[in-house]
Design a protein around this nucleic acid. Sequence first.
DNA 1: CTGTTAGCGCATTCAT
DNA 2: ATGAATGCGCTAACAG
Lengths: 342, 342
Amino acid sequence: MARAEHPSGRAATLSDVARIAGVSLATASKAINGRDQVAPATRRRVIEAAEQISFTPNELARSLIAGRTGTVGLLTNDLEGRFVIPILMGAEDAFGAGQVNVFLCDARGDAIREQHQLKALLNRRVDGIIVVGRQTDPRPSLGHDLPVPVVYAYAPSDDPTDVSVTPDNVAGGRMALEHLLACGRRRIAHISGDPAYAAAQDRAVGVREALADAGLELVGDVMFADWSEHWGRDASAMLLAQHPDIDGIVCASDQIARGVLDTLRDLGRRVPEDVAVIGYDNWEILATNSRPELTSIDANLQQLGRAAARRVFEAIDGIEGDAGTHALPVRLVIRGSTIPRR
Amino acid sequence: MARAEHPSGRAATLSDVARIAGVSLATASKAINGRDQVAPATRRRVIEAAEQISFTPNELARSLIAGRTGTVGLLTNDLEGRFVIPILMGAEDAFGAGQVNVFLCDARGDAIREQHQLKALLNRRVDGIIVVGRQTDPRPSLGHDLPVPVVYAYAPSDDPTDVSVTPDNVAGGRMALEHLLACGRRRIAHISGDPAYAAAQDRAVGVREALADAGLELVGDVMFADWSEHWGRDASAMLLAQHPDIDGIVCASDQIARGVLDTLRDLGRRVPEDVAVIGYDNWEILATNSRPELTSIDANLQQLGRAAARRVFEAIDGIEGDAGTHALPVRLVIRGSTIPRR
DNA sequence: CTGTTAGCGCATTCAT
DNA sequence: ATGAATGCGCTAACAG
């Protein structure tokens, strides 16, 4: 097994260093931590001794004294990791690599399990917690009687006195539609996903608002069903049968958009010349492999993670962030499904 | 901010409990930890006191004494999280939820960053480390002079004296081909991905072996390029132009298979009646949304995670696992692209 | 059965 | 500039 037969049998401690350097424990501590009350020569001896036995300070002991651990808990229900990974990366960015470490727990949508994980995180004395959901629908608050700050990411808390960061789906719907307008489209339909999702409703609101601002109306009703490619194929077939003259389709997910592209191709409609199609989520595996590649709205999840981490940090440092759900800006990623490649 | 104004100002400690219950620190400890040398009545008093002030034991202090933390580091380079999440879930399964917590660090393919993360994990005194790569090619070993056991998952270590668990790609290639044989196919081609990947080479080996065992030969050469849908579309077009009579295609990834399905559809070939297609990875988002749905090989990543966790555990408990790369079994998932739906 | 004592590894007083 | 002593929160010896 890849376990070192450490000469000492166990990890080196500061008192080992002190003994080798011929100084006291206190002096060794000061030397290692760069305190200024130690003679340069002494410091050098201590540091050499430390290197010699590969001493690394025990963060457990440090944390016990400091009262803070430099760890954060990431509590997720996002099984597929589609949302949690970019958020984790953003959090690592914000915390600074190696400065703060992240405990990742997956509650798997089970409230009991979530309570267990939460308790375990608190017992380990994390300095803060980020809760990540896999939908943008509000989720139950963990409550306020926790000894550490909590920030909700992607799925906001249902308690407005909590701090939540979530992508701005209304703005995303609006942005998608305005892009089609900018591409010269006027007869635009909207194929959405599961109507039970806040994301579906919010994006539809943005689409409608932007259309109204332009003095236009949606072609047909918003078509709700589920988030699948199958639905995208079926919905677009129905749509084109009823409204053969549409020239733009806003899809509420990239999966739906993939299905739409399929049907348009089957029906001999050119994309984007005849019909421009825009997806949502910018899920690269789907968006960059289609024919043509898919213009999409990106939720900036990594930035969302950074924002969540920053707010946790501020709270740890005692800075009162403003409570409520903060809708963060999204981003348009233009590809061939709305603008022809040259 | 969602921080409790904890009445005491800080978390309750065991001595708070002891004081309230009117017993000594040691007795409180025994009572809480279910030791048997304490009178039932006393235990009840202590537990009540603990609940009254919501005492939860400080794992830091416990770990400091025990010499083990009940934490494991998961060091990954898998940016997209496609592999690391199922592995994390498997690890949580094996460890038991809440028993062990996992530090997840993303080194982002940067060796320096990896060293930083590694050091941070060791300073936090994780009991073991699982290293996850995003390819099955061997990766540099972390070395043997670490104070904790290390197990490599998905990407094996290049040092055969390390412990690695990785999916059996040769068996997977073989399994894919044998399934097509079982479906009555005889004129079979293989469209693979980037030839620089061990996964591509290994799967091709399995395909060739199984063909040879059946006394057959591959139609054309193995076609290598990259892992994209684009390549799947192009490769299958070339393939059908040269060998119009093929009746089965083994694809080395689901993305490639999706492209192949597209081209077959464009060319008017029925799947699976005319040509059976099998993918690889069982990436559900791709496999379950295609027309028809895609038969695929699943690498059992969650099981891989469990295996890695189990081996880390055994090593922590001093059980010497057998070093080397362990190829774990994969699994066939049959859908409509090889067998017609009834 | 209960309490006293001694640490786990370290940082921080406060003396010298 | 250095070192002895104290304590972070807890468990494990022992002694009563």
